[in-house]
């Protein structure tokens, strides 16, 4: 199995800032248009993290013009430049899927002290 580990380690990012469920993050996504590259930022709350090592993905939810939008990002993908933590909140669940049923004030997360 150590050979599998070797293949995976080679592709994994080593400088990932650890973030958790409930954190508000800015995801820097590299977007290629023709031969030009630019960075788009997707800001929202991390509502889920799954998988392990190379196959880790996380789900970011934000309210865009009154409509809830969720994106699932592979953590170690080359198209994710970096993940910046804006704030951390106190949550008591590993998956915050209940936020999908809440709106406005009820859907806020309380900041960690």
């Amino acid at each position: 199995m150590n050979l599998m580990q070797w293949v995976e380690d080679k592709q994994m990012k080593k400088d990932v800032e650890p973030f958790g469920v409930g954190d508000t993050v800015k995801v820097h996504v590299i977007i290629k248009e023709g031969d030009k590259e630019r960075i788009q930022i997707f800001q929202g709350d991390v509502i889920a993290k799954r998988g392990r090592s190379l196959s880790t993905t996380f789900t970011v939810r934000k309210i865009s013009f009154g409509i809830g939008v969720e994106k699932i990002f592979p953590l170690h993908s080359k198209s994710i430049k970096k993940v910046e933590i804006v704030r951390t909140t106190k949550v008591r669940r590993a998956k915050l899927y209940y936020l999908r049923n809440l709106k406005g004030k009820a859907a806020r997360l309380r900041e960690e002290k």
Binding site: M4, V7, E8, Q11, I30, K32, L54, S55, P74, H76, S77, K78, S79, I80
Partner: peptide, 8 residues
């Protein structure tokens, strides 16, 4: 396992 291509 899985990996990522140039596009990510």
């Amino acid at each position: 396992t899985q990996g990522f291509d140039e596009k990510g």
